[in-house]
């Protein structure tokens, strides 16, 4: 006996298990980042007027802009990877997933240079409350990216072909569910970018 609704949707809910699971997981992630965002608001209200703007001006807007473009592209290629599976084209899927992985490495590299640039100027999380929340929020976001990369590498390995051959629909679902996570991580950045760099 197998657990039902892994591949086919349950009639009255219209969902497969993993899709409902990921939505609930994402709801908890919203609360996690929501908690940190409210911490940001709290600290900003507690700071002297102008302080946050002054501290934030140390950040590099161009680097973050490039990173925004990179992450959005990775989201697009993620959708394409899933769409390729839907069209039963495994080699296209590999190409698009490869692009997504590449984009995430570009993101991480740029982030690395951003962080080390700050450290080189003696700016640390302990410098002020803005930098504290900046490093915490972006650090947690980077951890989410790294987690995503690990999963993507797994789906990129040769065993992915075996999974695809054995259970193409389940494999497509997995990519779709992972894609939802990836878009969420992208969305978090889309919030972080204006809040930390521009406001």
């Amino acid at each position: 006996m197998d657990i039902p609704y892994v591949v086919e949707e349950r009639e009255d809910t219209g969902l497969i298990n993993s899709k409902l699971g990921i939505w609930i997981f994402l709801a908890s992630e919203v609360m996690l980042f929501g908690g940190l965002f409210s911490a940001y608001i709290f600290l900003r209200m507690a700071a002297l007027p102008g302080d946050f703007e002054r501290w934030a001006s140390e950040l590099s807007v161009p680097m973050a802009t490039v990173n925004t473009v990179v992450l959005i592209s990775s989201s697009v290629s993620m959708v394409m990877a899933w769409a390729s599976l839907k069209m039963k084209d495994f080699s296209k899927y590999k190409m698009y997933l490869g692009i997504t992985i590449f984009c995430s490495f570009v993101f991480l590299t740029i982030k690395y240079f951003e962080y080390s640039g700050k450290f080189a100027h003696d700016i640390y999380p302990s410098s002020n409350t803005f930098m504290a929340i900046y490093f915490t929020l972006t650090g947690l976001h980077v951890l989410h990216i790294i987690g995503g990369v690990v999963v993507m590498l797994y789906f990129y390995l040769p065993i992915s072909h075996k999974m695809w051959d054995k259970q193409p629909e389940q494999f497509t679902n997995r990519i779709e569910v992972f894609g939802l996570y990836w878009h969420f991580v992208d969305l978090v950045w889309i919030f972080l970018f204006p809040v930390l760099y521009l406001l």
Binding site: M31, L32, G35, L36, P125, T136
Partner: peptide, 19 residues
């Protein structure tokens, strides 16, 4: 999750010297 967020912040206060 908000407690997890809070725990991360307190951990930062303790190990990274944030305030």
């Amino acid at each position: 999750p908000p407690l997890e967020a809070a725990a991360v912040l307190q951990l930062m206060d303790r190990v990274a010297g944030t305030s």
